[in-house]
Amino acid sequence: MPTRTAAPRRAAAAGALREWTIDGLRFRSWSSIADPGAPTYVLIHGVGMSHRSYVHLHRELAPTATVHSLDLPGFAGLAVPRDDVTVSRMGDALAELIRELCPAPAILVGHSMGVQWAVAAALRHPASARAVVLIGPVVDDRHRTLLAQARALALDGFREPPRVNGRVLLDYLRSGLRWFFQQVGHMLAYPTERRVEELRVPVLVVRGSRDPVAGDDWAHRLAGHAAEGDVVVIPGSAHHVERTAARAVAGGIMAFLARRSVRPA
């Protein structure tokens, strides 16, 4: 069983900040707490990113739900683990953190590589998730190389607003090259489509219509691997659709959950 400790609460419940150590990995959670009975979302950023990826989506979801935005080990200024952390190990630690944060299964939302960590948590610990939302998912199984992903990411930079590129660059710089590329190696090796196939909860794939990282064909093929899958495409947005079109993403998620009758436990 992973070991865990929690630092004292350092902010009011409306924007509560806590730090956690689980299995030797340091996490940070930013939480908005709703009334009991409201749905709970856990927002998981991608490689090199931070909870700031979700500032706008968090705000859109919070009026009617409890929302936890996470900072993951080695990112957002958190300590870089001394040993390797595979997707499976990160999923195990995330599931333990989710159990601490949520009294009932949550809706797990991942962006980019955060998709893989969310899927691993839901698959390896089914009691942690009621549904999984995959935003800009990686890695397209027909383009599973570092060169292909680097090209797609570079192209995406020309399609994002300057403010988004600036935030992304700052987060990348804080993660450090060694940790970043170690995680990218795990990202490329992880068969997202096969793991999604094993999930038994509803799966929503969300992409921006101009996203070169998560193309339309890949998004629909990935949703097709799920037992209960669907796709939402947000017009005009690129890879960081959770930042640039948060209201549309939130609306798409809530409509999907209503269609699939996913309700709080």
Rank of each mutant, 00 (worst) to 15 (best):
G136W: 09
H143Q: 13
V168N: 14
P162S: 04
H143I: 02
S128Y: 14
R159I: 00
L173P: 01
L134H: 02
I107K: 08
W179C: 02
A154P: 06
G176A: 08
R174I: 11
R142L: 15
W179M: 05
D141V: 15
L155R: 01
A152C: 03
V139E: 00
L170V: 06
P126R: 15
A121M: 12
V132K: 13
L169Y: 05
P126A: 00
R174N: 07
D171N: 11
V138R: 08
W117A: 13
R144M: 01
S112R: 10
L108K: 10
H111T: 12
D141G: 13
D140R: 03
L134K: 00
L177R: 15
A131D: 15
G157H: 03
A152N: 02
F158E: 14
L147I: 05
R178S: 14
V168P: 06
Q149L: 15
F158Y: 14
V109A: 02
V115T: 14
P137Y: 05
H143P: 04
G114P: 11
L123S: 07
A154H: 14
I107G: 08
L153W: 04
P126S: 04
G110N: 04
A127P: 06
D156Q: 04
L173N: 09
V139F: 03
E160F: 09
A118G: 09
A129Y: 11
V132L: 04
Q116E: 05
S112H: 09
R124M: 07
V168H: 01
I107S: 15
D140Y: 09
L177N: 07
H143R: 12
A150S: 08
L108H: 10
H143V: 03
V119K: 14
R163C: 00
L123G: 15
R144A: 15
G176E: 06
R142I: 12
L177A: 09
V139I: 02
L173I: 15
Y172T: 11
D141P: 11
D141C: 11
W117N: 02
G136Y: 03
Q116M: 04
S128F: 05
D140Q: 09
A129L: 05
E160P: 00
